[in-house]
């Protein structure tokens, strides 16, 4: 890129920021980074490999990745239509509906777990119906996925709805006048145009699912290979083997960093 084609880029550094903003910005960054550095200093690197490859660690990591992926898929399947309905249609009680959908964002996850328990648990609202169908959710991997989906869904809906609103309806209107049916408009115009927003929403949802703890331990329980995800394993290891907890925490940080970096890169390439 030459200067002449992107004058804004060349001019950017000269845009004056008040110099004092760098102080709180740096302090804030330090506040986030320093604990990670502190954790790094606590790792016993000689045992790191053994700690993170123990059977229970591998089982927890595999379960975490598997369930987070599954819940991200569920978030997309339900979250995309939810975001489209919230952004594009008008119905009575819409603002209430939006607030309710976003509630898990501000709710403590434990509360979410309790709510799920009273809905899908054995004695819950739907417990009897599920029992009749032969479905027992509690203590199963499915319960982990449900807990993760519950807390991660709003992240996807929020970022996608934002992308839809920013994008506006201009292209969809044109597509309609070109004879495209609503489904065609949705699949060939709406979705491709919000793909970056959808990608970042899905990453946020995945990251949130990966870190989910409170709702899982309340609703799904904790059993190696079945419901004990990485955060639960870390919390348990803390009891007996703080070294292992630190090592596993580092693995979680690494996985999250990799996911976020990969997506950012693919987005800038887009």
């Amino acid at each position: 890129m030459t200067r002449s084609t992107r004058p804004g880029h060349a001019a950017y550094p000269r845009l004056g920021l008040p110099s004092w903003v760098f102080v709180p910005a740096a302090l804030g960054a330090l506040f986030v980074v320093l604990p990670l550095v502190a954790m790094l200093t606590q790792v016993e690197w000689s045992q790191f490999g053994a700690l993170v490859t123990s059977e229970s660690s591998r089982a927890a990591l595999a379960l975490s990745l598997k369930t987070s992926l599954a819940s991200t898929v569920l978030c997309i399947v339900f979250g995309v239509p939810m975001a489209v309905v919230l952004a594009r249609s008008r119905f009575p009680g819409q603002s209430v509906a939006r607030s309710l959908v976003l509630l898990p964002l501000v709710l403590p996850p434990v509360v979410g777990g309790i709510a799920l328990l009273y809905t899908f648990g054995r004695r819950g609202l739907l417990g009897h119906e599920l029992d009749v169908l032969g479905l027992q959710v509690a203590f199963s991997t499915a319960a982990v996925v449900m807990a993760q989906t519950f807390v991660a869904l709003p992240f996807l809906v929020v970022s996608l709805e934002g992308a839809l609103r920013t994008g506006g309806q201009r292209f969809e209107e044109v597509a309609a006048t070109l004879g495209a049916r609503p489904t065609t408009v949705f699949l060939r115009v709406t979705l491709p145009l919000v793909l970056p927003g959808l990608a970042s929403g899905a990453v946020l949802a995945f990251a949130r699912a990966l870190g989910e703890f409170g709702a899982t331990i309340t609703f799904a329980g904790s059993l190696q290979g079945v419901t004990r995800t990485l955060p639960l394993e870390i919390y348990l290891q803390r009891e007996t083997d703080p070294q292992a907890a630190v090592a596993l925490s580092l693995v979680l940080v690494a996985v999250a960093t990799i996911v976020i970096t990969l997506t950012r890169r693919s987005r800038t390439a887009l």
Binding site: R170, E173, V174, A176, L178, R181
Partner: peptide
């Protein structure tokens, strides 16, 4: 609906 009207739009 717009897609069945046979009307073109140029903005």
């Amino acid at each position: 609906p717009p897609h069945s009207r046979g009307i073109g739009l140029l903005a």
